[in-house]
Design a protein around this nucleic acid. Sequence first.
DNA 1: AGCACA
Length: 447
Amino acid sequence: MSSVSSQSQFRLTQPPSKVLHLRNLPWECTEEELVELGKPFGNVVNTKCNVGPNRNQAFIEFADLNQAIAMISYYASSSEPAQVRGKTVYLQYSNRQEIVNNKTTADAGGNVLLITIEGADARLVSIDVLHLVFSAFGFVHKITTFEKMDRFQALVQFSDVETASSAKNALDGRNIPSYLLPEHLGPCTLRIAYSGHTDLSVKFQSHRSRDYTNPNLPVAQSAIDANGMFSMGLDGKKLEPESNVLLASIENMQYAVTLDVLHMVFSSFGPVQKIAMFDKNSGLQALIQYPDVQTAVVAKEALEGHCIYDGGFCKLHLSYSRHNDLSIKVNNDRSRDYTIPNNVMVNPHPSILGQQPVATHGPPSHLYTGAQFAPTTEHSTIPQPSSGWATGFPPVPNSMPGQMNNNPYLPPGTMPPQMGHGMMQMPSHGGPPHTHAMPPYRPYHMQ
DNA sequence: AGCACA
C-alpha cells in the first residue's frame, strides 16, 4: 500500500545489505581501489564507482551479506577510518540489495549474453564446454572469457537476439551438465544477462577467447595446450592432438564398469594393449591404449557418447590422452597390460574379482560364475579385500564376457548391438537374490 | 559526506 516508507534520507541505521554505499571518495576512484578496500572482508563481487552528483560516491557489493556486515562493523569500531588514497571514506549499507549494472539497454536484450559461472570450480570450465552448451541454441559466433571481481564470466555472441534469448531462458540459473565437465568438478551454475555488446572483438583463438566465424585467426598456443577435455575449436575442428591412448570417463555409472567390460568394449575396434582405471574425484576414468592412433580415432568416434549399458547407464566420454604408452606396474582389477604374458607380472589380488589376466582377444575368464554375485556372506568363495570393494564398488556387473569372441569390427557411429543389450542380461547361472547390487532391468529412464 | 538507469 504505502509507498516508500523508509526513505528518510538521513536514517542512521540502514538495514543491512551486501551492497555498501561509499562517499567522500577521491576523484575518479577506480574499481580496483574499491576491490582492495573490500577484499579484507570478503569477496567483492561487483562495484560501481563515480556515482553521485560529484562522482565521488561508489558501491561495493559483497558475495555474502556477512561480509558486508564485517566491513561495516569493523570500521564502526576502528580508530582508523576507511581510506582510499589517504582520504577518509564513509560507508554504510546501501538501500539497494544489489548493484545493477547499467551498461546499455539491459532489458531490451541483445545478441550477446553475459554469463557468470558460479561455483568453486567455475574457473575450470573451459571455453569449449561453454561453446558446447550454448551451441545447442544456435551458431555461436564468438566467446570471450574473463575474470572480473572474483567472478568467472563469459560473453557469448549469437547471430541475433532471438537465439540469445532462447539460450538465456533455457540456461539461466541452470547447472552445466556434469558430464560435460572434465573432472567431475563441483556444480557450475550459469547466471545469464544480456550484455550491451553486439559484436565482440576477438584477436586470437585462445583458451580465453574464440571467434568461430573466423578460422583464420592466429591461434594462440594456449588454445592448444588447454587441458579441457573438449578441445574442438574452430568449426568443430579438433585442436586436441590425436593419440593412440584414449581417456574415458564414465557418466551415470549405475553399474560397475570393470576392466574386462572396458576391454571387451574397446577391443571391438582393434587390439587393446593396456588399460588403466582410476578414480577421478567421484568419477571413474580409464586410459585405454591401442597400438596406433588410427584405431584410437575409430574407437573414439564410434563410442563417444554411447552407453555401455541400456537405459543410459555408463555413458562414455572419450578424449585423447597425452600419454602414448601407459606404464602398467601391476596387473590387477584396475590396470592391465595385455601385451605381457600372464606369468610375468605379479597379481597382488589374484582372485578378488575372479579374473585372470587375459590375452588380447583371448577368451574370457571361466571364473565368471554366480559366485561373483553371491551375497558377501559366502566367505568361502569370495575373499574380502581390506578396502572392501563390495561397499566402495558394486560387485562385478552383469557383463557377458562370453561375447568377447564375436565382437565384430564395427563401423564408426554404431555401438555393438549385442553389447548394449547383452550387458543387461544376467549370467545364466542366475544365482541367489542380489538385486540390491544391480539395478532392476528397466529399458528406459531409470531415474 | 548522504544512494546509480547511460
